[in-house]
Amino acid sequence: MPIIPPTVTITTPALINGKSLISDGLLARLTTRIADEHPELAPDMPTRIMDQALAFLGTCAVATRPIGPSDTVDIGWHTFILYTTEYAEFCARIAGRFIHHVPDDDPVVSPVQVKLADVVETITAAGYRVDPELWPLTMRVDCSQCHSGCHDGN
Rank of each mutant, 00 (worst) to 15 (best):
M1Q: 02
M1F: 04
M1D: 01
M1A: 11
P2E: 02
I3R: 07
I3E: 02
T7A: 02
T7V: 04
V8I: 02
T9L: 00
I10N: 01
T11I: 02
P13A: 09
A14S: 07
A14W: 02
L15C: 00
K19C: 11
S20E: 15
I22M: 13
S23H: 05
S23D: 06
G25D: 15
G25V: 02
G25T: 15
L26K: 14
L27K: 13
A28H: 03
R29P: 00
R29H: 11
L30H: 12
T31R: 05
D36K: 14
E37C: 11
H38K: 14
H38E: 12
P39H: 11
P39Q: 08
E40P: 06
L41C: 07
L41S: 05
L41P: 04
A42T: 08
P43S: 08
P43F: 07
T47Y: 01
T47S: 11
T47N: 07
R48A: 12
M50N: 10
M50Q: 12
D51F: 03
D51I: 05
D51R: 09
Q52M: 13
Q52K: 02
Q52S: 14
A53Y: 08
L54D: 10
A55W: 04
A55Y: 06
F56G: 05
G58R: 09
A61P: 03
V62E: 04
A63C: 11
T64Q: 14
R65G: 08
P66C: 04
G68C: 11
P69T: 10
S70T: 09
D71F: 07
V73Y: 07
I75Y: 11
G76N: 06
W77Y: 10
W77K: 04
H78I: 07
H78T: 06
T79H: 08
L82E: 13
L82V: 05
Y83W: 13
Y83P: 05
T85V: 13
E86T: 12
Y87M: 05
A88G: 05
F90D: 13
F90E: 10
F90P: 12
C91L: 10
C91G: 09
A92N: 12
A92H: 12
A95W: 10
A95G: 06
G96Q: 04
R97E: 09
F98D: 08
I99R: 14
I99H: 10
P103Y: 09
D104L: 10
D105S: 15
P107T: 09
V109A: 08
V109H: 10
S110K: 15
S110W: 01
V112K: 08
V114I: 13
K115S: 12
V120H: 07
V120Q: 08
E121G: 09
A126P: 09
R129Y: 03
R129W: 03
L134T: 01
W135L: 02
P136N: 00
L137Q: 12
T138A: 12
M139C: 02
V141R: 15
D142H: 14
D142L: 05
C143K: 01
S144A: 00
Q145E: 03
S148N: 04
C150W: 03
D152H: 05
N154F: 01
